[in-house]
Design a protein around this nucleic acid. Structure first.
Lengths: 450, 450
DNA sequence: ACAGTTTCCCGTAAATGC
DNA sequence: TGCATTTACGGGAAACTG
């Protein structure tokens, strides 16, 4: 029937669930024992069917109905029971949604609980990690048409069932991968032999990820830096192993999370170059005026962190410094604009100097970040307490004193007086150290390039 | 029977439950839907009864059996079902515990769930807040003796059932109050007309609270400061309203929590004077050498916070400063010893000076706190990042510049350079401000004393 | 509308299973 | 034993309910 086809094609499924780490916007990740809801909507207006159609959800109905490449180990997947309000499966009558003028059934308070073999209590020896198991909820609509009883089936996109929010990044990786497949999207055993994807496809998806949490995607420079992290040199493709197993996705995920939770404004403003190599930052800054700085995501800190590099021209030499990356813990205590504002370099003479002046290429710091400075209400002079604030400080470490020597030195009293400077050194020493540091970095570069 | 009496008197009940905010050590607070366990132990050695005695727990059995002063609205209390491992009530056979050589029954995985009228779904209009409802678990032991069947009953101390951990401090207040009653401790409707207690009794209990979380109780000076907070001037007693409703207990609770979680070592060492008025701190410090400081709990911050005051003699004048209190959030990011170590005063010339030298009366700071300094592993000189640390800073605020003026002043560039100093002022101005401040404080004192 | 009380659920830590 | 996965539950916030 044409009507059937139209019904089928026009069915939409929207899921809603409180999200873990708040990232997935249209979650296809379902957590066991946590309520979620699904709305089925038939877009075509068939008012004559109003309150005559009964919809029933089934979880992983007809497990074996999709078999591709002869692979079907879905039977080894975990089994789940779908319940509504803790009672067994419940059907709903399609109702008319007045705002959209469509037939709608909304299932609320759905929960999944794993069904284990009570006797053996053995988990099915699934060949796949649970985050790579794909599941599907089907909605069967019973239709009486011209005296015939017909079932119309509609199903969700593949979804991943997790039991703890620490599984979310990995589950999300699976769903993205699934989403990048061009063919039939309902192959539940996709990850038994996960196909590779082109960089073109992946870059679109990554861009989409950033756009889904913010108003800004990734530009060409940023994408080209990411390309090197993902693409296999040999065949020019991105492999599932590289994407998920080797952690590159998790690095991106951590950054997405950091942006959404702590950096949204300045990311939207385009003030974070972010995905750019340290080497490129150094060369970009080298010719800029003293105090020019760039914000970039750390590549070494796995869980997502942001750092800033700045250039200084002094004593005839040019130095580019990069500060220890700021993790979520740091940003929780102080926003990045405020951190940049309060960051100071402690001189050997124990005086403070903020080395950050111009956001690359030459935006005055205040201009970029002023509106994000916290207007902490200044305590009145009549307040009984002297106000106190946190500041981020750096000073060059000296390798010449061990911690013990430092503590037990005869100048102990003096050190206490200025003990915020955990290390003390002479200006000449500073230069020496920087030169050594540069030599070491050059050596490392030489080694990695060979 | 003498045996029965002995059995009865020798029964002990020990409860165990994961604690909210980790305070109550021997929790008599039970949270609904969270597992707890109870161990019943008969101290007398009756090996002949081994595995012959069946113990059954009952929650709020015989609600109305204790009625004092004609008051018994326990029937309006919430009703709970006690289950073990989610199944209905389970009995246990008394077993022989080899280590203590006593008869023991341990009930594990017990949970309480509220029993609501399914039809009306109406909460019983209890006359008391739920944190003042006292409940009791009774253990009935079936005993066959000389052909007679006898029941021996043993019960827990009164306990409070909460549904969320934010109810813990209030519940704990009730239990302490209960504990201070001299008479029959099992009056479940105690709080229908809560008796007052003597300061003598309360001070013992407060002392015991500090001893239960640390190795140090409260000394005479500390107790006398607390006395003024609790005791009613009119009758010299402490009233339930003052203790719990007016928040004095919650202030203490927050401090207990702060000590247990963040200050245990230095509290045990006796380095926190803590409960001492700001005025007394000022007068104690006034005659000490510059840099002498005292640690004291904030009286204005409700949730528990610690501050330090120090004395400075300069320009012929004596100043005592107190820093903005450190809350749990501050202590989570840095321990108090480290915070004291990194605390610096920023001069108008933008140089740092740590004003804290001697813990009152004259213990060198290092001597008191050195062993608590965090030995953060120093980053190697070869590390690609410049290390960064947090520091706590203060500088005197100036009331002469509004934030906007400050931002838009022609010296903006200069201010940015030293923008860690949010305010700039002259040394003369500082003196002026301090004098004004002192005047204001004197006025306030004069007002409160009249 | 509101306050007292409970539920919801993330995120960490611990427990469990394989 | 180690790893993969689930459970437990504190704590903050939302939802409930008279």
């Amino acid at each position: 029937h044409d009507l059937l086809r139209r019904l089928h094609e026009n069915a939409l499924v929207v899921e809603k669930q409180p999200c873990m780490k708040s990232l997935p916007q249209q979650p296809l990740i379902v957590k066991t024992k946590v309520a979620f809801s699904v709305k089925v909507r038939y877009l075509i207006k068939l008012k004559e069917f109003y309150s005559l159609l009964l919809v029933t959800p089934f979880f992983d109905k007809d497990v074996n109905d999709i078999t591709i490449n002869g692979n079907n180990d879905c039977s080894k997947f975990r089994k789940f029971n779908l319940t509504a309000n803790k009672s067994p499966r419940i059907s709903k009558v399609l109702a008319l949604d007045f705002t959209s003028d469509a037939l709608v059934a909304e299932f609320e308070n759905l929960t999944l609980t794993e069904e284990r073999d009570a006797g053996t209590r053995s988990n099915n020896q699934s060949s796949l990690p649970v985050m790579e198991e794909l599941h599907i909820i089907k909605f069967v609509t019973q239709l009486q048409w011209l005296g015939q009883a017909l079932d119309v089936e509609t199903s969700t996109l593949p979804l991943v069932v997790v039991s703890s929010s620490n599984q979310t990044p990995s589950a999300w990786a699976s769903l993205l991968w699934c989403n990048m497949q061009t063919g039939e999207p309902k192959n539940r055993s996709l990850f038994l032999s996960p196909p590779s994807v082109t960089w073109q496809r992946l870059s679109e998806v990554l861009n989409w990820q950033f756009l889904s949490i913010s108003k800004r995607g990734l530009n060409e420079d940023q994408l080209s830096m990411l390309r090197d992290k993902f693409v296999d040199q040999a065949d020019g493709l991105v492999h599932w192993t590289r994407f998920s197993k080797e952690g590159v996705w998790f690095w991106i995920y951590g950054i997405l999370y950091l942006i959404e939770k702590h950096l949204l404004d300045i990311w939207n403003d385009g003030f974070i170059m972010g995905f750019v190599s340290k080497e490129r930052v150094d060369s970009l800054l080298r010719n800029m005026q003293t105090g020019t700085f760039i914000l970039r995501f750390s590549e070494t800190v796995k869980e997502g962190a942001i750092t800033f590099s700045w250039v200084e021209h002094l004593n005839g030499g040019t130095h580019v410094h990069a500060v220890e990356p700021c993790t979520e813990k740091d940003l929780e205590m102080m926003s990045l604009p405020n951190l940049i504002r309060c960051y100071n370099y402690v001189s050997p003479e124990n005086t403070l100097r903020n080395p950050l002046h111009y956001l690359y290429p030459s935006i005055p710091k205040e201009e970029a970040f002023k509106r994000h400075y916290s207007n902490k209400t200044r305590r009145s002079i009549l307040n009984e307490y002297l106000s106190r604030r946190w500041a981020a400080l750096s000073s060059l470490p000296t390798p010449l004193l061990s911690p013990d020597e430092e503590m037990d030195s005869p100048e102990e009293e003096f050190i206490e007086d200025m003990d915020i400077v955990l290390e003390h050194f002479s200006p000449d020493l500073e230069k020496l150290i920087m030169e050594e540091l540069q030599k070491e970095l050059d050596n490392e570069k030489a080694e990695t390039s060979t």
